[in-house]
Nucleic acid binder design. Structure first.
Lengths: 356, 356
DNA sequence: GGTTCCGGCTAAATCGTGTTAGCATCCGCG
DNA sequence: CGCGGATGCTAACACGATTTAGCCGGAACC
């Protein structure tokens, strides 16, 4: 373990091979053939480089070329949501695949910190920045973000912005969830937990809620289903689902609950259990997100999964594409939608044909 | 939005101020006073720099000085554990506080990927690397990690290594958990869920399990408590807790369950509920980790919290310390233990004095 | 035989900063 | 008047790569 060991440089390889640094550089960047380096020299260079354990100094390359093979990932909160983990992982994998490293920063939602992070990343000459929100919402694009290639992830610009965005297809998810119930024959006794009945009855700033509702209503309207009640919840935590469900149970005997996320559904499970009702025999439950809790409860939840991994990966791809056509052809800002798909648990039971 | 805008360089500031780049460099790095730059020039430099919006090119500085104000964070898995999020956040905050950025990499546990990540980070001349495991376990230190300052986080080297390590104080946590039950008067009907009875009866490679057991037994032995049964589980998921608890219920009427983590406890809750037993009236439950689920169940779990945030922050601090005394005074590798503390939920009820 | 062309390589400039050595100028002192 | 010493600043090199322009010798062509 040679701690103070000096790294091998291009010059070292050049001297050891007996050629110029130019030659080594050309060979190792793969441009040797084009620029008329003989096969013999090329081979000698490669083998001494290998032998000495040469590795490019990325800082130096970055300084010279302006490309650092590095992208920045700024998010508001990592900790609050496990789902974040998969989004980050998707981004990481997509980046690593192309030999890119990822700077990571967390702003806590503070605009000052956001700006500072973006600047710090530009100072390190990142090739692009993914600006992510951990739950889908409108955001104020921080000053300076558009000084380089950038993509919004799981967020839409609050004001106009030329940046592309990557989001889950929440409307489609709403349709999918509603269709699960409709396909199982549910027409009566359906209740919404977490939002509604109006499209405006959603937690503040929740794009997901509004769009899910739109999709749900499309399918329900088409099938002639009218939810008996709908409970807007200020937050979407288990406690809110618990309270909302108890409220439902006070006046009704529900046949199906459509919860706007899994944590609400978890709370609903608790309230149903307390009331002596069984899932799915007495009540069917469908929700959104595919949070880990969805597969821990008994029976497992049928839920429309947030494609976190794909979202992260897609964002990086869009970023690369944006970086490549830098300068030319900047059309209208594009919004990419990533489809959400149904994960079938055991929380939905078809309505017997006799009673339909 | 000037996309192609060239960044302002030291030379630009120098020209605009009418001095040399040396002077500007000295002033802006705060060494102007020492090196006899007049107050007047210093002021002029600072104000033009501000005016032009000058920002240091970190690549260039890194190339020249060898310090990049950057550290690398390599972990095995982000996604599998929310807890990971807090660890990363702790590291991020500690790093940002000192003006450091963080490279993030995920290996998936693949030694090849681990090595590649470490090399890629060294190529980018990070000032140090935090090598983290998302659940406490022994790891093989990847080749090359010790070519620069490094710290193991939530992990111990499988073979000898000179690297320092940062870990939660699991033995202390075991003592704390056991003490909660003992202090509440529990002496009889105590069962262990997840490991035991022997210290070797633990899931493979689980440092946490072994150490928690040691702490538990220290307190139980001192108080004269003998667990009635102990169930080793291959994994520590809700299902395992559920199965183990049903097994207990088949033959016993437990008064207290000491679960080796919250997910096991969650499964135990499900089994107890099915059996018509109430927490904490019939059965007290204590566990470990302070996973989000601990505060979602009813009643909330009394759990010994993993100090993820502190672990991440501590690792970065240890890394900085290691980097500073680089070269000199490398003594025996140090293992830092971060204390774990009890979070009181409502899952423990004192045994009535009459029946003690 | 002179010019052109081509193959095969290299010298030198460049990216933006930090750092060492040293150049003027002025002051005070004997 | 000559000299040492402080004061205030700068020239030039280094960091480790990429890239442009061009050198040199031999072959081909008119």
């Amino acid at each position: 373990m040679a701690l103070g060991r000096r790294r091998v440089t291009l010059a070292d390889v050049a001297k050891a091979t007996g050629v110029s640094t130019t030659t080594v550089s050309l060979v190792l960047s793969g441009r040797g053939r084009d620029l008329r380096i003989s096969e013999e020299v090329e081979h000698r260079v490669r083998s001494t480089a290998q032998e000495l354990g040469y590795r490019r100094n990325t800082l130096s390359v970055g300084l010279r070329t302006g490309r650092t093979q590095t992208i920045g990932f700024v998010s508001d909160t990592v900790a609050s949501s496990l789902l974040a983990g998969n989004m980050i992982r998707g981004a990481l994998e997509a980046a690593h695949q192309r030999g890119f490293m990822l700077f990571f920063g967390e702003s806590g939602g503070d605009p000052g910190v956001e700006k500072a992070l973006v600047e710090a990343m530009h100072d390190r000459r990142v090739d692009g920045i993914v600006f992510a929100a951990m739950y889908t919402r409108p955001i104020a694009v921080p000053e300076g973000l558009d000084h380089g290639p950038a993509v919004l992830l799981n967020a839409l610009p609050a004001a106009y912005s030329s940046l592309p965005a990557v989001l889950p297809d929440e409307v489609g998810a709403g349709r999918a969830a509603a269709r699960v119930l409709v396909d199982a024959g549910h027409r009566e006794g359906v209740h919404l937990v977490g939002a509604g009945p109006g499209v405006e009855d959603v937690p503040p700033n929740s794009i997901a809620a509004a769009e899910r509702l739109v999709g749900i209503r499309q399918v329900f309207d088409a099938a002639g289903v009218r939810p008996v009640t709908a409970h807007r919840c200020p937050k979407w935590m288990p406690e809110d689902g618990y309270d909302a469900t108890r409220e439902v149970l006070r006046h009704h005997r529900p046949k199906a609950l459509l919860c706007l996320n899994d944590r609400l559904a978890f709370g609903a499970y608790q309230a149903l259990a307390e009331a002596g009702l069984s899932v799915p025999d007495d009540v069917s439950v469908v929700s959104f997100d595919d949070h880990p809790i969805a597969s821990w409860v008994r029976p497992k939840l049928t839920t429309v999964a947030l494609p976190h991994h794909e979202l992260g990966a897609k964002a990086v791809e869009v970023l690369f594409a944006a970086a490549e056509r830098r300068g030319r052809l900047r059309g209208a800002p594009v919004v990419h939608r990533v489809p959400m798909s149904v994960r079938h648990g055991g929380s939905v039971k078809p309505v017997p044909v006799s009673s339909r």
